[in-house]
Protein backbone atom coordinates (compact mmCIF):
# COMPACT_ATOMS: atom_id res chain seq x y z
CA UNK A 1 0.00 0.00 0.00
CA UNK A 2 1.24 3.47 -0.82
CA UNK A 3 2.18 5.75 2.04
CA UNK A 4 -0.75 7.05 3.96
CA UNK A 5 -0.78 10.69 5.00
CA UNK A 6 -2.49 11.04 8.31
CA UNK A 7 -3.66 13.89 10.51
CA UNK A 8 -4.24 13.26 14.23
CA UNK A 9 -6.48 15.77 15.99
CA UNK A 10 -6.87 15.77 19.78
CA UNK A 11 -6.57 18.40 22.47
CA UNK A 12 -4.56 15.95 24.57
CA UNK A 13 -1.21 16.83 23.03
CA UNK A 14 0.66 14.09 24.82
CA UNK A 15 -1.74 11.43 23.56
CA UNK A 16 -1.35 12.27 19.87
CA UNK A 17 2.38 12.81 20.16
CA UNK A 18 2.88 9.29 21.46
CA UNK A 19 0.37 7.81 19.04
CA UNK A 20 1.87 9.80 16.16
CA UNK A 21 5.34 8.43 16.87
CA UNK A 22 4.09 4.86 16.96
CA UNK A 23 2.19 5.27 13.69
CA UNK A 24 5.15 6.97 12.03
CA UNK A 25 7.23 3.94 12.94
CA UNK A 26 4.72 1.87 10.97
CA UNK A 27 5.48 3.96 7.90
CA UNK A 28 2.72 6.56 7.99
CA UNK A 29 3.27 10.26 7.40
CA UNK A 30 1.76 11.90 10.45
CA UNK A 31 0.61 15.47 11.07
CA UNK A 32 -0.67 16.64 14.47
CA UNK A 33 -3.27 19.23 15.43
CA UNK A 34 -4.44 20.19 18.93
CA UNK A 35 -7.70 21.84 17.93
CA UNK A 36 -10.37 21.72 15.28
CA UNK A 37 -9.27 25.05 13.82
CA UNK A 38 -5.63 23.96 13.61
CA UNK A 39 -6.81 20.78 11.91
CA UNK A 40 -8.72 22.76 9.28
CA UNK A 41 -5.66 24.91 8.60
CA UNK A 42 -3.49 21.85 8.08
CA UNK A 43 -6.11 20.20 5.87
CA UNK A 44 -6.38 23.32 3.71
CA UNK A 45 -2.63 23.42 3.15
CA UNK A 46 -1.74 19.72 2.81
CA UNK A 47 -2.66 16.67 0.78
CA UNK A 48 -3.96 14.11 3.28
CA UNK A 49 -5.58 10.68 3.12
CA UNK A 50 -7.08 10.11 6.53
CA UNK A 51 -7.94 12.22 9.58
CA UNK A 52 -8.24 10.75 13.08
CA UNK A 53 -10.42 13.16 15.02
CA UNK A 54 -11.30 13.46 18.71
CA UNK A 55 -14.90 14.35 19.57
CA UNK A 56 -14.63 16.32 22.78
CA UNK A 57 -12.38 19.31 22.31
CA UNK A 58 -12.55 22.80 23.71
CA UNK A 59 -13.61 25.41 21.17
CA UNK A 60 -14.67 23.69 17.99
CA UNK A 61 -15.75 20.18 18.91
CA UNK A 62 -15.17 17.09 16.79
CA UNK A 63 -18.61 17.00 15.21
CA UNK A 64 -18.34 20.59 14.05
CA UNK A 65 -14.81 19.97 12.80
CA UNK A 66 -16.04 16.89 10.93
CA UNK A 67 -18.73 18.94 9.22
CA UNK A 68 -16.22 21.56 8.13
CA UNK A 69 -13.69 18.99 6.96
CA UNK A 70 -16.34 17.25 4.85
CA UNK A 71 -17.41 20.60 3.41
CA UNK A 72 -13.83 21.44 2.56
CA UNK A 73 -12.75 18.03 1.26
CA UNK A 74 -15.63 15.59 0.87
CA UNK A 75 -13.36 12.71 -0.10
CA UNK A 76 -11.10 12.94 2.90
CA UNK A 77 -11.87 10.03 5.23
CA UNK A 78 -12.35 10.86 8.89
CA UNK A 79 -12.10 8.37 11.74
CA UNK A 80 -13.55 9.50 15.03
CA UNK A 81 -11.47 8.33 17.98
CA UNK A 82 -12.85 9.27 21.35
CA UNK A 83 -13.58 8.28 24.88
CA UNK A 84 -17.04 9.78 24.51
CA UNK A 85 -19.21 6.67 24.41
CA UNK A 86 -22.50 8.14 23.32
CA UNK A 87 -24.81 6.50 20.82
CA UNK A 88 -26.36 9.77 19.65
CA UNK A 89 -23.09 11.58 19.06
CA UNK A 90 -21.67 8.51 17.34
CA UNK A 91 -24.65 8.33 14.99
CA UNK A 92 -24.42 12.02 14.24
CA UNK A 93 -20.78 11.51 13.29
CA UNK A 94 -21.57 8.52 11.09
CA UNK A 95 -24.38 10.39 9.35
CA UNK A 96 -22.05 13.26 8.66
CA UNK A 97 -19.85 10.81 6.81
CA UNK A 98 -17.29 9.65 9.36
CA UNK A 99 -15.69 6.40 8.26
CA UNK A 100 -15.91 4.92 11.73
CA UNK A 101 -16.31 5.86 15.36
CA UNK A 102 -13.72 4.16 17.55
CA UNK A 103 -13.58 4.25 21.29
CA UNK A 104 -10.48 4.71 23.39
CA UNK A 105 -8.59 2.77 24.39
CA UNK A 106 -7.97 1.25 20.99
CA UNK A 107 -5.26 -1.22 20.09
CA UNK A 108 -2.64 0.14 17.76
CA UNK A 109 -3.11 -2.66 15.24
CA UNK A 110 -6.83 -2.14 15.16
CA UNK A 111 -6.39 1.57 14.57
CA UNK A 112 -3.82 0.90 11.88
CA UNK A 113 -6.15 -1.49 10.07
CA UNK A 114 -8.93 1.07 10.23
CA UNK A 115 -6.63 3.71 8.80
CA UNK A 116 -5.62 1.34 6.02
CA UNK A 117 -9.24 0.45 5.29
CA UNK A 118 -10.23 4.11 5.22
CA UNK A 119 -7.29 4.96 3.02
CA UNK A 120 -8.09 2.26 0.49
CA UNK A 121 -11.66 3.43 0.29
CA UNK A 122 -10.59 6.96 -0.30
CA UNK A 123 -8.30 5.90 -3.12
CA UNK A 124 -11.10 3.96 -4.77
CA UNK A 125 -13.72 6.66 -4.71
CA UNK A 126 -11.24 9.48 -5.29
Amino acid sequence: MSTCRLLLVDDEAEFIETLGKRLARRGLTVHLANSGQQALDIIAGNELDVVVLDVKMPGMDGIEALQKIKALKPDLEVLMLTAHANVEVAMRGMELGAFDYLMKPVELDELLYKIQDANKKKCLTG
Binding site: N86, V87, M91, M94, E95
Partner: peptide, 16 residues
Protein backbone atom coordinates in the same frame (compact mmCIF):
# COMPACT_ATOMS: atom_id res chain seq x y z
CA UNK B 1 -18.84 2.54 30.78
CA UNK B 2 -18.94 -0.97 29.35
CA UNK B 3 -22.64 -0.84 28.51
CA UNK B 4 -22.33 2.59 26.95
CA UNK B 5 -19.30 1.80 24.85
CA UNK B 6 -20.62 -1.58 23.68
CA UNK B 7 -23.96 -0.07 22.73
CA UNK B 8 -22.22 2.74 20.90
CA UNK B 9 -19.85 0.36 19.11
CA UNK B 10 -22.73 -1.91 18.10
CA UNK B 11 -24.72 1.04 16.74
CA UNK B 12 -21.74 2.38 14.82
CA UNK B 13 -20.93 -0.96 13.26
CA UNK B 14 -24.51 -1.67 12.25
CA UNK B 15 -24.67 1.79 10.72
CA UNK B 16 -21.57 0.91 8.74
Amino acid sequence: AFVRSQATAASVNVFR
